[in-house]
Structure formats: C-alpha cells, structure tokens
Amino acid sequence: MEDFIILSPGQRLRKLRKKLGMTQAELASDNISKNYISMFENGKRPINVINATYLAEAINQKAKEKNIDIFIKPSYFIKNERDIAREMCLEIIEEVSQNQMNKYSKYKNLYKAIYISSQYGFIDLLAQALEFKGKTLFREGLYFCAMTHLSKSLLYYFQEGNKEGIYNCYLAIGQIHFMDENYEAAIAYFNLASAYGNEDNILYYRALCHYKLGHYKIARNIIDKIIFKDERVLKLEKNISNIV
C-alpha cells in the first residue's frame, strides 16, 4: 500500500534527498538553511517558488552526477497532495487508454487509480478507471467482474452527468450480455445506450441481437435505418438477405 500514499511536499523532498544519499546540510546553501529544509520536510514551513526552484535544481544536478533517472520541476515541491493525486490518476488513465501497459500492469495501476480517486473523491476519474478496468476484464472473458466494474462506473458517470461515459458503459454492458448469449438483455442495454451516443453503432448491435434470436425481419428493418454502413454492417445485411 506504500505506493498508494501521496506524500506531502516536504515528504517528497525527504524521499528524493535520501534516495540520492544527501544530508540536509549538503542540500542547504547560502540562501536556504539546513533548518529551513528540516522544517519544510516536517511540514512546519511553507515554500515559495524561489526556494522550490533551488531545491529542484539541486536535486536534478545531484541525480545527474550519480547517473540516477530523476528530473523534477519546482512545482513538485509546491503542489499539494490532492493535486499530485489527481495528476497520478490522470497519468495512469492516459497510459491505459493508449495500451502502453501489459495486462498485469494495467490491473495494478487501475487498482491504484481506483483506490486513490476514491480516497480523494475524484468521481470523474473514479468512473473512468472503473470503466477501463471493466473493459479490460471483459477482454479477458471475465464477464461477471467486468459487469460489476462497469455498473459502478455507470453510477458515477450519472453523478457527473457524463453522457459519453454513460453511453460507453451501457454499450459495454450490452456487449457483455451479447457475448453471454443473453440477447434480450443485450438489446435492453443497447436501447438505453441509444439515448446517449452513436445511433448507427447501436443499431448494428441491436440488429445483430435480433439476427441471433432469429428475428430476421426485425433485424433487416433495423439495418435499413443505418446511414453509414461499414464492412461489418454490410456482412450482416448480406447474411440476413440470404435468409429473408
């Protein structure tokens, strides 16, 4: 759980200083005393931009000398825990959305984003992290767990009034029911999604469900309503035409 703890500005400095093997005295200068550094690290003294800039430059220079991969900006010592927590969650969600992690890293980092966003009340980020984890579980075929996460995400998206998020969750839940061959439930969720997003996409899934149920005429009528027909729609349309 240590990775989930958001450090205060002073604690961040202490952690970096110790990682570099520096004492407070070694970090001090003519313009910033050892006592100031001690008080800042213990949360008893605020910091200004000038001192934050000096500390960042001193840390970066020492890291360069020791060939340690550290580079920080002055804002790292100014931002409060809440700001850092939000940035951390946003970074995780961005990396996950770009598929820059393997499966196990995704689960670990999404759990971290869910935990931190929940602790700090970042409802918008909590909804996104739950959605991404739900979709990751869905791709692994873990439908029940995926449904649980997506349902929670849906509730938070409703709290935020995020129509795109609501659409994505309804669509994903509908797809889970489809994969589970519960086509009636899938249609219900696709119908719910249609009020919030891309109608053509929803029409395709609804037609596909009716096709699976043997409702070929209904499926054909739905296909006829699709304006922009991609390859998958044309394939389904051809299959239906061969039957009706």
Rank of each mutant, 00 (worst) to 15 (best):
M1E: 15
M1V: 13
L7D: 01
L7Y: 01
S8M: 06
G10P: 12
R12E: 01
R14P: 00
K15Q: 03
K15F: 02
L16A: 12
K18G: 01
K18S: 10
K18W: 01
K19G: 02
G21F: 00
Q24C: 10
A25T: 14
D30C: 03
N31P: 07
S33I: 11
N35H: 02
I37V: 09
M39T: 10
N42T: 05
G43I: 00
P46F: 09
N48K: 04
V49Y: 00
Y54L: 02
A56P: 02
E57F: 06
N60H: 04
K64R: 12
K64G: 00
P74Q: 06
N80K: 06
A85L: 01
M88C: 09
I92Y: 07
N99Q: 05
K103L: 12
S105I: 05
I116R: 04
S117A: 03
Q119K: 14
F122P: 15
I123E: 11
L126F: 08
A127F: 08
F132W: 04
G134F: 13
K135V: 15
L137V: 13
G141Y: 05
A146V: 05
H149Y: 08
S151D: 10
K152M: 04
L155M: 05
E160N: 09
G161Q: 02
I173T: 09
Q175P: 08
D180V: 10
D180I: 05
N182L: 12
Y183V: 04
F190T: 01
Y196N: 11
G197S: 05
N198C: 06
C209A: 10
K212I: 08
L213V: 15
H215G: 04
K217N: 06
I222T: 13
I222F: 00
I226V: 03
I227M: 15
V233K: 04
E237I: 11
K238G: 03
N239Y: 10
I240S: 11
S241T: 11
N242P: 05
